[in-house]
Design a protein around this nucleic acid. Sequence first.
DNA 1: CTGTATCCAAAATGATACTG
DNA 2: CAGTATCATTTTGGATACAG
Lengths: 156, 156
Amino acid sequence: MRDDKIRRLLRVGEAKSGMEDDPRVAALSRLVRAMGDPPPDREAPVREVIARLGDNWSPLILKILSTGAYRHTTLKRVIGEVSAEAGISQRMLTLRLRALERDGFVAREFHDTVPPRVIYSLTPLGAGLADELDRLLGWVERNSKEIERARLAFRD
Amino acid sequence: MRDDKIRRLLRVGEAKSGMEDDPRVAALSRLVRAMGDPPPDREAPVREVIARLGDNWSPLILKILSTGAYRHTTLKRVIGEVSAEAGISQRMLTLRLRALERDGFVAREFHDTVPPRVIYSLTPLGAGLADELDRLLGWVERNSKEIERARLAFRD
DNA sequence: CTGTATCCAAAATGATACTG
DNA sequence: CAGTATCATTTTGGATACAG
């Protein structure tokens, strides 16, 4: 995207005297270039991975798996005890694990016995993602007082 | 939660000879304590903030606002040009901005003129969140090759 | 211009029953 | 035990019209 297009978006007049150099133009220009062309869509890793971290169950799954390897049902049982909500449905657990496996964060070890045994664990990549999650949680934790304050002040 | 309850969840027998000390028990115990009692529900800042980062529009809004202050419609126009999708609806933009404002990440400056002028900008707290977002994006970026490889390998 | 209200479509999640 | 299929419910998002 060219800078003059950005100027039009911002309704910034052409700089004739050099006084209208809106700093947002250069900053937006950098942002657009950093995002690439075309910009990442919903299926792009950047979007998907952050969406995973933001969904209801994946963060908890990552945290639990960072303590070790688990069978499917054991994982379900642990989530049911540890979460604030009613517990995860078998369907959702499978969906989430599949998504995490698909992106290389979770390894699935299948033993074709009766009954079958399937062991889920974090890959090194998944452990890295769990670390990122921890750092993010740490930031929120450190700022939760201020967030709570903002929430209370938000009675407008 | 007591450790023997965790052992039952994991179907770990009582250690009589000291050989069954499943390392997951201690790790899970630490995890449960770190999460607090009761564990954070959907409205808790930890959950909400990460959910914000994971939704469709908030990350982009944060990125754009980190380049400066914007009026409502200008922001909408910029998002429409910068995003991969069709653009954000006025309703969603308002909802997202409200949520970000509610948690103290975005400041709303209202001028009661005709037509009204409303300027949105990041608070220092919001700038901090934008920094966290950047670090997260950086991590995904650095690992996107490996993620793509996992995706291609995931034809099972 | 900023925002709300209403209605509608699409997506996420859960419940339940079933299979190998 | 692990997983799938189906259906119901909830949540989320968009389109449109309208108000101040």
